Simulated assay, not measured.
Amino acid sequence: MGHLWRQWLGAIVFYTTLPLPRSWAIELAGIARWCPWVGLGLGLLLAAINWGLAGLGFTDHLRAVAVVGAWVWFTGGLHLDGAMDTADGLAVLDPSQRLVVMADSRTGAFGVMAAILILGLKVTALAVLAAPGFWALGLVMAWGRWGQVWAIACYPYLKAEGKGAFHKTTCQFPQDFGPGILVLLLVMAYPLTQTLTVWPALLCLFGLGLLVSFGLGAWLDQKLGGHTGDTYGAIVEWTEAILLGCLTLPYFQF
């Protein structure tokens, strides 16, 4: 249990900017398994902020901007930076130069456009969703990180070094899928506690989550021949944004 606890703390330190006492021992090897749980925790924290701002009388759009700003703050922009670098790399016509461009610390026009699209979609969707958004935020953030775990397991890592390299070398599959599957089942089942009649829509939403998270990983692998830490971040960000947008559809109003 001590080993798993240190991994959990390591996941919080690596994937978030949440402060932990420096005296607490952490372990980074194998933390990918806890990504979806970190996402759920962050989603609940953001939902609490969302609820508080709504209670203070913030308009829907101001509330949405503030929550998305906190979203970036609590993740340190880690995944958003990866999505921006990935967009810059994919914009290069020569496939052999894509990884070189992605490694460049300078942000290009396509990276900026990707960030605007992702943040704009999240703000717009949050402004439409009900103010608390506990379930929606926890769901999309868990799904985004599940897509990352899948990409780590299924595709080669393209760089000898980098922030994401140790994920591939230290993770153990298929057992590392367990925690992520559990959290997805728990969060997907929540609407059933209100009424059982929503199960067809939930089943459809589950299929949509699989399609988006798996599809993005496969598409990026096809474009690059594998994955890097940047593409892991891109999967997280685009899965979150797409699913959050889909949750505004009337069919998914649970």
Rank of each mutant, 00 (worst) to 15 (best):
L99N: 03
T16C: 07
G209A: 13
W238Y: 02
V128L: 10
G2S: 09
V187N: 05
T17I: 03
L211M: 11
V149E: 00
W150N: 10
W71Y: 15
G55T: 00
V187M: 08
I181N: 04
I235M: 11
V92S: 08
T239I: 10
G245Y: 13
I181P: 00
A48K: 00
K122H: 10
T231Q: 12
W238V: 13
P191L: 08
E240H: 01
V65M: 11
L186G: 15
V67N: 03
W73R: 11
G52V: 00
V123C: 10
T193L: 15
P200L: 14
W71N: 11
Y190C: 10
A54T: 06
W5G: 02
K159T: 09
G217P: 09
W37H: 09
P191Y: 14
F134A: 09
T170R: 02
A29I: 07
A189Q: 11
G233C: 07
G10P: 00
V187A: 08
R145F: 13
C171N: 11
V183P: 06
A241F: 09
E240I: 09
V100T: 11
L44C: 09
C154P: 03
D88F: 02
T75Y: 08
L203Y: 08
F134Q: 08
A189I: 07
L80Q: 01
I26K: 11
S96D: 14
E237T: 08
T170P: 00
V101F: 02
S96Q: 14
W135Y: 10
L249W: 14
P156V: 02
V183Q: 00
F252M: 00
P200Y: 09
M188R: 07
N50S: 15
G226E: 02
L249C: 04
L9Y: 06
V72I: 12
L137F: 10
D85W: 00
L247A: 11
W8V: 05
S105E: 06
G57H: 07
A136Q: 15
Q194I: 12
L126D: 06
D85M: 03
L126P: 07
K122G: 05
